[in-house]
Each structure stands twice: as C-alpha cells, then as structure tokens.
Computed example of a mutant assay.
Amino acid sequence: MSPDAPEIDETDRRLLRLLAEDSARPASALGRELGLSQPATWRRIRRLREAGVIAGRRLRLDAAALGFGVTVFLGVKLSSRQRVALEEFERAVGAIREVQRVEHVLGLYDYRLRVVARDLADFERVLRRRIMTLPGVGDVEANVLLSEERRAGPL
C-alpha cells in the first residue's frame, strides 16, 4: 500500500462492493446492510471520495437498446510515435462521439479504442471518414464484439 493510500477496512470494502453494484443506493439503505447509521455511512463515503478511492458515479447505458447494435475494439498503431502525434491523436479521437473508450497501451498497437455504431455499415463510415483520417493513424485492427459475458465490477 502506498504511503498516501487511505486505510481501508473490511467495512469499507463491503461498502465499495455495494456501491459498485448500485451507486445510487441511499446511505440509509447501505448503512442498514452494513450495520451503520446513515451519518456514519456518509462519513465513510465522503472519506473514500476525498481520498480518491471513489472517483465518481457512472450511469451505464445499454448501447443496443439505444440503437447501437455493433461494438468494435480497434487496435490503432500510429505511423509516427512522436509525442506531438500522440497528443494530437488523443485530442482528435476524443472528439469522435462513437468512440466510447480510448486506452493508450503497450504492445503491438499504441491505442485500443471501443467504438459503437448502429450497424456494420455505420461502423465502416466512422472508420473510413473519422478514424482513418486522424493525425498519425497507421495500422488498424478491428475486432467485433460478439457477446459480453461479464461487465466491469468491483476490483
């Protein structure tokens, strides 16, 4: 554990698991499950937020229910690995609304992107007109998501 890391006890761990399942649960309900009062639960949540352990709350949308039937993971290798090219690429790819996630990775590719589209024709349009025209883009490899068996959960 790093010197700046907060002390996390078993109650904190249980609280984090409950929040990871449903971050909108009221502190009173969380407290009942943990055997704590609402104020004690809020103090723990506030301490964990202030320490950076809880980085925010996210709303998870169902892409398919919103009309985005295709998810593609793209490996992107930049043709130029200069720092300016990296920053330029990151800024440009961040402006593409279909790109849901951008990860700078070590390996065969420089970036891994999660892209959603209405269908394969829509994905091809996004790839050709938006992604392949970005500064520094070299090789690209696409992997279409067939199914997602496990969603992100607690650490």
Rank of each mutant, 00 (worst) to 15 (best):
M1R: 02
M1L: 04
S2E: 08
S2L: 13
S2T: 13
S2V: 03
P3E: 15
P6V: 10
E7N: 14
D9G: 01
T11V: 06
D12T: 07
L15I: 00
L16C: 13
L16T: 05
L18K: 00
A20N: 06
A20I: 03
R25N: 01
P26S: 11
P26K: 01
S28A: 02
S28M: 01
A29D: 02
G31N: 03
E33W: 01
E33Q: 05
L34A: 08
L36I: 02
Q38I: 00
P39V: 13
A40M: 01
A40C: 02
R44K: 09
R46K: 14
L48A: 05
R49A: 14
E50P: 11
I54T: 10
I54W: 06
A55T: 13
A55W: 14
G56A: 03
R58V: 15
L59P: 06
L59C: 04
L59I: 08
L61T: 10
D62E: 09
D62Y: 09
A63S: 09
A64Y: 14
L66K: 07
F68Y: 10
T71Q: 13
G75Y: 04
G75H: 10
V76L: 11
V76T: 11
L78E: 05
S79F: 13
S80Y: 08
S80F: 11
R81F: 06
R81H: 09
Q82V: 03
Q82I: 10
V84K: 13
V84S: 11
L86D: 07
E88L: 09
F89Y: 05
E90D: 03
R91F: 12
A92D: 05
G94T: 12
A95G: 12
E98A: 12
E98Q: 09
Q100I: 11
R101L: 07
V102Q: 03
V102N: 03
E103K: 08
E103L: 15
E103A: 13
H104W: 14
H104K: 10
L106Y: 04
G107D: 14
G107S: 08
G107R: 02
D110S: 03
D110H: 06
R112T: 08
L113Y: 08
V115R: 03
V115L: 07
V116K: 00
R118Y: 01
D119L: 11
D122V: 13
D122H: 06
R125K: 12
R125G: 08
R125F: 12
V126M: 10
V126I: 15
L127K: 12
L127C: 02
R128F: 10
R129F: 13
I131K: 07
I131H: 02
M132T: 14
T133I: 10
T133Q: 07
L134T: 08
L134E: 10
P135A: 03
V140A: 04
A142P: 01
N143D: 11
V144F: 03
S147Y: 13
E148C: 07
E149P: 07
E149H: 12
R150G: 07
R151S: 08
A152D: 10
A152V: 15
G153L: 14
